[in-house]
Every structure is written in structure tokens, then in C-alpha cells.
């Protein structure tokens, strides 16, 4: 049984001046999958997902999401269609409280009813374990907690595709275990694309792994296949 393809790219490229950050990438992501995107630093992973969610425009190629060509669609419309992105470098509303941060992510789907918003936000904060910090100013929290807030804001949008850019960076071991549990739960009704350096997290979560290097996909397969792949090992050892 072939799963429905939620997201695909054809010939997707991005050039910065002479630098080919992403070159001619064909990529397919079936609905419901947890996919990990790995590769050495500077392989073009963040550039690639930034094109998917519309933060930066593609130089060439095509992006299809849920059957629609979204290549030229502005970022906020893609987000409205169900692509949520959590930033690699934490990006939250510093001066607002933790609850207000999450409310802003929830209110687009829920509307502005105060009671409903607060309830939905608190439920989310409970899930990521930040409920006891709901009143705190977001910037005052420790870095690891800010990462969790980012994830809560990603979930708050009830996305069809959740893109997580190095979500476990700066989390403690205990928090990482919670994170893995959380993503497994989320993945029941959400497709997840995960950029991750922590190989344990990748192995624990990913159903399939895509490996990028020098702006191109060099391998794709199950965790076992990737583990055994010589090209991948060469890229990591050489890179």
C-alpha cells in the first residue's frame, strides 16, 4: 500500500551568489511518516527546509504540498495550509509570557475566545512540561525550556507537517527522552520532518532517513540501511 505523498520537491535549488547551497533536490515525504534529515554542517539542510516553509525563496525547481504547487506561495499561506516550522536558532516572542507565546500559535486556528485559548494553551504547555512556567517572561527561561516552548508553538498550529530544525540542541538527557515520547505521540496524526544531529534521537524516532551533503541528497533509506551505507560514512568521516 503506497502512502499518500504529503510533500514533494522536484529539482529544488537555491544559490547564494556563486554558492550552491541546495542543488537539484528531488524529495518525497509520505503522509504520517517521521523522517529525519541528517548531514554534516553546511550540507544545506536548513536552507532546504527554509525553502519548504517559505522563509527563503527557491532559485529553481518546484515544491508540492498536499497536492498544490506552493513554490511561489508566501510563507504565511503555507503555514496556514499546515506547514509548521520551528527555528534552529530559538525564535520566540521574548518580552511576552510563555502562555502568550503559545496563545499566539493557537489563536489562528481557534479564534480569539479567551477561555478557549487559555485552555488550549495550557494543555499544550502541560504536554511539553512547561505549565508551571506559563506566567514567566519567555526570554527569562533557560535555553532548553525555550526550545520546548518552540516545539509547543509548532504543535499549537495543529500542522499537517511539522518541521523541526535541531529541536534537541541544548536539551538535557531527561528532556530528550520526554521529547522522543512527545514526538511519537504527535506523529499519530502529523507528518514530521526532523533535522537532527543527535544520532540516538534519529534512530529512536525516524522511520526513514534522508542524508544530505554539499546541497544534494546522497542517500535515503531505513535507519538500518543508512547505518550500513558506505557513502554516508565517508561523508561524515570526510566532512
Amino acid at each position: 500500500m503506497a502512502a499518500v505523498i504529503l510533500l514533494s520537491t522536484r529539482g529544488l535549488s537555491r544559490h547564494f551568489g556563486g554558492l550552491r547551497a541546495v542543488e537539484n533536490v528531488d524529495f518525497d515525504l509520505p503522509e504520517g511518516e517521521i523522517r529525519a534529515l541528517i548531514g554534516p554542517n553546511g550540507a544545506g539542510k536548513t536552507t532546504f527546509v527554509s525553502m519548504l516553509c517559505g522563509r527563503i525563496p527557491a532559485s529553481n525547481g518546484q515544491i508540492t504540498f498536499a497536492g498544490r504547487d506552493v513554490t511561489r506561495m508566501p510563507a504565511h499561506k503555507r503555514v496556514q495550509m499546515g506547514i509548521a516550522y520551528t527555528f534552529q536558532i530559538t525564535s520566540i516572542f521574548d518580552a511576552l509570557s510563555v502562555r502568550e507565546n503559545v496563545e499566539l500559535s493557537v489563536q489562528r486556528c481557534l479564534g480569539a475566545d479567551r477561555g478557549q485559548l487559555a485552555a488550549a494553551s495550557d494543555a499544550l504547555l502541560e504536554r511539553v512540561g512547561l505549565l508551571d512556567r506559563a506566567e514567566q517572561v519567555a526570554a527569562d527561561m533557560a535555553y532548553g525550556h525555550q526550545r520546548l516552548l518552540e516545539i509547543a508553538m509548532g504543535l499549537g498550529q495543529r500542522p499537517r507537517l511539522l518541521i523541526l530544525d535541531e529541536p534537541t540542541q541544548g536539551l538535557s538527557d531527561g528532556e530528550i527522552a520526554d521529547f522522543i515520547r512527545l514526538i511519537r505521540e504527535v506523529a499519530r496524526d502529523t507528518t514530521v520532518l526532523l533535522i537532527e544531529h543527535n544520532i540516538d534521537v534519529v534512530m529512536a524516532l525516524a522511520q526513514k532517513i534522508t542524508v544530505m551533503n554539499f546541497g544534494a541528497i546522497i542517500a535515503e533509506g531505513t535507519p538500518e540501511e543508512i547505518h550500513a551505507n558506505e557513502v554516508v560514512q565517508a561523508a561524515y568521516l570526510g566532512g
Binding site: 516553509c53 522563509r55 508566501p74 510563507a75 504565511h76 499561506k77 503555514v79 496556514q80 509548521a84 516550522y85 527555528f87 525564535s91 520566540i92 516572542f93 521574548d94 518580552a95 511576552l96 502568550e100 496563545e103 499566539l104 500559535s105 489563536q107 489562528r108 479564534g111 480569539a112 508553538m153 498550529q157
Partner: peptide, 24 residues
């Protein structure tokens, strides 16, 4: 209102507001 809160969100972090699906 919803709009007012989005305005504050834009003041605080426009990129983030856009990536929450708001037309900044």
C-alpha cells in the same frame, strides 16, 4: 482582539509571527 495581539507579535518578532501563519 486577535488583530491587536498579532500586531504585538509583529513588534516582538516579525519573522516568527509570519511563521505562525500571520500575514505580517
Amino acid at each position: 482582539s486577535r488583530t491587536g495581539r498579532v500586531l504585538v507579535a509583529i513588534r516582538e518578532n516579525e519573522e516568527r509571527a509570519r511563521m505562525l501563519g500571520y500575514d505580517s
